[in-house]
Amino acid sequence: MELTTVWFVIIAFLWTSYFFLEGFDFGVGMLLPVLGRDDVERRVVINTIGPVWDGNEVWFIVAGAATFAAFPEWYATLFSGFYLPLLAILIALIVRGVAFEYRGKRDDARWRARWDRAIFWGSLVPAFLWGVAFANIVRGVPLDASHDYAGTLLDLLNPYALLGGLATTALFALHGAVFLALKTSGEIRFRARRVAGIAVVAAIAAGGSFLLITQLQHGKPVTWLTAAGAAAGLLAAAAANRRGREGWAFVGTGAAIVLAVATLFTALFPDVLPSTLGSGGLTTANAASSGYTLKIMTWVAGAFTPIVMIYQGWTYWVFRKRIGTSHIPPAPKKRPEPVR
Rank of each mutant, 00 (worst) to 15 (best):
A285L: 10
T283I: 06
G291D: 15
T77D: 01
T184H: 11
R320K: 14
K334H: 12
I204E: 12
R103G: 07
D271R: 05
L180R: 02
L163M: 08
D25Q: 09
T184D: 09
R193S: 12
L273Y: 04
I94M: 14
G165E: 02
W53C: 15
A227L: 03
I46H: 01
V261K: 00
F79T: 14
L86D: 07
R139G: 02
I310L: 13
P85D: 10
Y75R: 01
P336K: 14
E101L: 05
V261G: 02
I310Q: 06
A92S: 15
P159N: 05
A287T: 08
D155Q: 08
F20I: 15
G233S: 03
G207C: 05
L124G: 06
A236M: 13
L259P: 01
V98F: 15
E41C: 06
A63C: 07
V178N: 07
V178M: 11
S279F: 15
I89E: 07
L235D: 01
G233P: 05
W121R: 09
V138P: 03
W121D: 02
P126L: 05
Y18N: 06
G50S: 07
S146K: 15
Y149V: 10
W130L: 12
I296Y: 09
A262G: 14
R110F: 08
T169N: 01
T77F: 05
P33T: 02
T266L: 10
G244V: 03
F265H: 05
Y83E: 10
P72E: 05
S146E: 12
L268S: 03
M1P: 12
G151D: 07
L174N: 11
T214W: 02
V40T: 13
A240R: 08
P33E: 06
A287H: 09
R340V: 15
G208T: 13
A173M: 06
A237H: 07
L259R: 03
A127C: 06
L212M: 08
S17L: 01
V58D: 13
L171K: 12
T325Y: 09
N47P: 03
A238G: 04
M309P: 03
L156A: 02
R117N: 10
G97R: 00
N241Y: 00
G131I: 00
T263L: 11
R243T: 01
P126K: 13
R42A: 12
T284C: 03
S289A: 13
G97S: 03
A99E: 04
A227H: 03
A196G: 04
V300P: 01
L157A: 14
G208D: 04
V251F: 04
W115M: 13
A288W: 00
L93F: 08
A239R: 09
L21M: 11
A301Y: 14
G252P: 04
V45E: 01
V251I: 13
L235P: 00
L163Q: 01
F250N: 08
G164N: 07
I49H: 07
A232E: 09
F120C: 02
G36W: 03
A76D: 10
V44R: 02
Q217M: 10
L282A: 09
R110W: 10
G229S: 03
